[in-house]
Simulated scan of single mutants.
Amino acid sequence: MPVERLLATRAQRAFILTITIQAIVVLTMVAITFRKVEVKVNFHAPQYKTLPCYLALFALAEVFELLMALDALRLRNIIQLIGILLFHMALIVFAAIQIHQTESALLGGNDCTNHFNLINCPGPGSLWSSVKPFLIVVPVVIAAAWFLMMFWIKELYSEFGWAIFHVVGANPKMKIMYQWYQIMLCLIKFDFFFFVGVTMQLLIVVLARNSAEFGVTIAAIPVVLVLLALCATAVQREIKWLMTVSLVMMLAASSYLYKLVRIYEPASRDMYVTTRASLTIFTIVAFILLFATFAVGLRCFADFDRGLQASKVNGGSYTPVVTKMELFGGNMSQTQGGAYTGGSALQPRISIE
C-alpha cells in the first residue's frame, strides 16, 4: 500500500474542507456579533471587553486548528488528529460559555423594571436579542463539523496505519517509543495555543496597560514560546542537557496557576467578572497540559539513545513508495525511497497492525 502525497486522498481533502468551511462560518458569525455590538457600545468600558476577546480567541483557534490539521496530515500523525478532535470539543464548550458571558456583559444585571433601554435590557428589539441567534449558531456549527471530522478521521486512521511502519520498522518497542514522541510534540503544540489564549484574555480584558502585571505578562510570551521551541528541538535531536533545562522550566512555568487565585480573591475578582468562566477553563487546561507535557517529556527522555533519533529526524518526510506484496507466497518485499531512512527491511510473514 503506497503512502499518498499530502491532500492526495478524498479523506484528507474532505477533512481539511470540513475545518475550513466551519472556520469561515464561525468567524462570520462572531464578526457579525462583534460589529452589532461595536456600533452600540464603547469597548473601552471593562464590561464590554469580552466581545473583542471572543473574536480574537476564535480567530486564533480556527487558524490554529487548520494549521494543526495540515501538519497532522503532513506528518501522517493520527495521534495529533485525535488531539484536534479533543480540541474541537473544547471549542464547542467555549462557544457555549461565550453565550452566557456575552449576556452578562451586555445585560450586566441591570434593573429594567422601571427603565428600559435597547442596549442593556433584554426584550424584543434589544441588542441582546439581535446578537443571540448568531452566538447560538457558533456552537451548533462547530458540533456539526465535529461529527463530520470523526467520520473522516476514521478513514484517515486506516490510511495512515501503514505510514508509521515506514518510519520505525516492525519493532514493537520502537513503535511505542515513536508514539510517545508524537504525543510529546502534539502536547507542545497545544501548550502554545492555551498559553497564548490565557495571555490574550488577560491583555485584552483584564490588565491595565500601565500596570506591572501587564509588562510581566508581555515579557512572558517570548520566554514561553522559546521554551516550547527548545523543548521540541531537544526531544527530536535527543539533546539531554537541553531537555533537562526544558523540563525544569516547565515546573517553574506551572506557577502560572496562581492566576486562578487572582480570579477569585475578593481584592481582584471584579476585574474578571465578564471572563471568569473562560479564563478559569483556559488556565486549568493550560496547567493540565503543561503537567502532562512534563510527564510525557520524562518518558521520552528515558528513550534517548535507544536508536530512535534517525526516525524522529527523518520521520516527517514522506514521499510515495512502490510496494509489492506476494500474497499467496507469504512474502512481502518493497522498494523504499530515501525518505524512510528510519525504517527497517520487511521480513517474511510480518503482521502489521
Rank of each mutant, 00 (worst) to 15 (best):
L207I: 01
I142G: 06
M271W: 08
M325S: 08
L290F: 04
A31M: 11
A252L: 15
V223D: 00
I263R: 05
R10D: 10
L7A: 11
I153D: 05
C300I: 01
F94D: 00
P348S: 05
M271T: 07
S158H: 14
I218P: 01
L70P: 02
M149P: 00
A277L: 15
K175W: 01
I136K: 11
M89V: 13
L279A: 12
V248C: 12
L55A: 13
H115A: 09
Q347Y: 03
M249L: 15
L202K: 08
A252H: 00
F151A: 12
E353K: 15
T9C: 06
V296H: 02
K240S: 12
F160V: 09
P2R: 11
P222S: 04
C231K: 14
C231H: 10
V25Y: 04
K189A: 14
D191T: 11
Y264I: 13
P266D: 04
A61E: 01
M177P: 00
A163D: 15
E213T: 12
M243N: 12
M89G: 15
E159W: 08
F134T: 01
G125V: 09
L135N: 09
T28I: 10
T18K: 07
G343C: 04
L135C: 10
I183P: 02
T341W: 06
K132R: 14
P46I: 11
N120Y: 10
S126F: 06
Y318L: 08
W128F: 14
G125M: 07
L57E: 11
F15K: 03
C121P: 09
Y54M: 13
F190M: 06
G169T: 04
T293V: 02
L106F: 06
P320N: 07
L185C: 10
H115I: 03
F301G: 01
A234F: 04
V273W: 07
A56N: 06
P320G: 10
M68F: 08
G125S: 04
K154H: 15
L135M: 13
M271R: 14
L230F: 13
L187G: 06
A61L: 07
V30G: 04
I221V: 15
W180D: 07
P320T: 11
E326M: 12
K312Q: 10
Q12R: 07
A90Y: 12
